[in-house]
Every structure is written in C-alpha cells, then in structure tokens.
Design a protein around this nucleic acid. Structure first.
Lengths: 140, 140
DNA sequence: ATTAATACCAACTAAATTACTTGGGTTTAT
DNA sequence: ATAAACCCAAGTAATTTAGTTGGTATTAAT
C-alpha cells in the first residue's frame, strides 16, 4: 500500500510550482535540481499532469510550467489520482470501471471500500495552498 | 497505492477463520477452495500470520488453523501490517525505523503523515467481528 | 503399523511493475 | 543563429509480485 515515486515526486514538484504561483513559468530543470530528481523522469510526470489539466506549459527559452489554477483549487487527490491512477486500494473498489468476478458485496470488499473512502477524505481535503501555508508555519 | 494480493487474500482468509471461530481448526485447503486461491500461496501468508501471533495451528490429520483470539480482538490493521508491512504510504513516514535523507519535515512528508494517519484510523477501527456482523446484516 | 490428511519449509521462477535512460524532435526569447 | 526549454516514443535494468515446485514432519483414524 505504498505510493510510487510518481506520486511522491509529483507532490514534491507540484509543491514547488505552488510556491512560485503567479510568478510565471519555471523549468523542469530547476525543480529537478531543487528536489534532486531525474529531469527526464520528471518530464514524464509533468506530461501526465498537463494532460489532466493541472499544469500548463510554455515552450522555448525561458519557458516552463505553471499551475493551471490557484493552489487552493488543486488538491493532493487531484495530483495522486492523475499520477497513480484511480485503482486504490484495490481494483474491486476502484472507480475506473473494473468489477470483480463475484458481483456480490463481500466482507472484504466492504472493508476496502471504507479504506478507499478514508484515503479520499484525506487527500481531497488537502490543497497545495494548505501545503505552502503549513510549511511556512513550521519554518517560522 | 494498491494492496497486494497478500493483504487482500489474507483478509479474505482471516474472515473465513472468523466465521468458524470456536469450532476448531480448519484446513488451508478448505479456505483455498472456498475463496478460489492457491493453496501453497495461502500457506505462505498463514506462516506470516502465525509468526505474528494472529493465528494458531494444529498439525496432522484433522488439523488446521484457528484465530489465536476472539475476532473482536483482531483488527484489519493487525492483518494488513502483518502481511504488507508497515511502510505505507511511503518509507519516510513508516514506523519501521527508516529516515529520509533530509531530516527536516518537508511539506510532502507532512501530507504523507496525514495520509498514514487516515489509513490507520480506518484499518485499526475495523475488527474481524465487525466484518462478520456487517456481512450478516447485508445477507439477511 | 499403515495410511491419509494435514501443517511446515525453502528455493525457484515467470510475469508485471517501477523507475528510470536514451535519443531524438520542436518551439521561442534573445 | 543559438541556447534554453518543452515534447515524445522507445528501450531497459532492477525490483516486486504472485505464485510454483518439491519436499519433510506430524497426527487422527483405521
């Protein structure tokens, strides 16, 4: 039940974008340097995040990426679902159309559904804005 | 952020043990048949669950496995942590001694800690007894 | 005593997933 | 014209998952 590096790196990178929100685009390279991540790997994650409308890009020199909307309008859930998919904590309770063989609601499925709900409660309630504000509080 | 088959099969099997709690041991084979799982694979899971004191076994003919204590004394969290380990949703907030390179509390770590907390809240609040009772409610 | 049913155990393996890397191309400010 | 960036597809090494294989040890029933 672990997050992959996609989700983790994605969160870290989106947090960096949130910090500089409103100041124009920043490059993958600067984020990769800041967080000590692979530039090319981050690129793949950004491609996914862009496809899902969470960030926008501008090409050419002095180009880069920006959040597509205000940090308070982007949740951790938006980011994790974009990068990790919607199939947690198990296929049988995922919202992407899968159905387990036995159609009935089994005891285990009920537990997994509650777990999914608990996870969603947390990740959908935290925005990038919250992350920035809390981080400021801690480092003051 | 998906549960592996270990956690999922383990839950299913422990639920079967909970249903027959108090009626003596039942064999891996009967559970494997009931839930359509590999007998040898289940065996490995039971070995782990036994090591962690959640089940007890009796060997020889008419032997098998039983819960080590009352279903209301065993939580979903006990089972999942036994089979899947304690390193969710990421190493940097796991309770198994790992520490990430940057010692400081970063924004992402804070989020992951909240997520871990949310997950624990759910899985530690559901007992095998709850699973049995809820399942009875549904099928009546 | 023999047999059948069971738990116990270690090592092997195929498939899938993860976490990248490689090697390009395209766009744009200067 | 150049350099700095995004864009894109394919390849790959390492790890993890999900088992399988092939045994041994124990015990109830006969």
């Amino acid at each position: 039940m672990r997050l992959s590096t996609k989700g983790r790196y994605g969160l870290m990178a989106m947090y960096q974008l949130a910090i500089v929100y409103g100041e124009g685009p920043i490059s993958i390279k600067s984020i990769a340097d800041e967080e000590e991540l692979s530039e090319n790997y981050l690129e793949q994650l950004f491609s996914t995040l862009k496809k899902d409308g969470l960030i926008v890009s501008s090409r050419g020199a002095y180009g880069g990426y920006m959040l597509s909307r205000h940090p308070k309008e982007i949740t951790v859930g938006d980011i994790l679902r974009s990068l990790e998919g919607d199939n947690y904590p198990a296929e049988c309770v995922s919202s992407d159309g899968f159905e387990c063989k036995k159609e009935e609601m089994c005891a285990t499925k009920l537990v997994l559904a509650k777990l999914k709900n608990g996870i969603d409660q947390v990740i959908d309630s935290i925005t990038l804005q919250d992350m920035v504000e809390e981080s400021n509080t801690i480092n003051s």
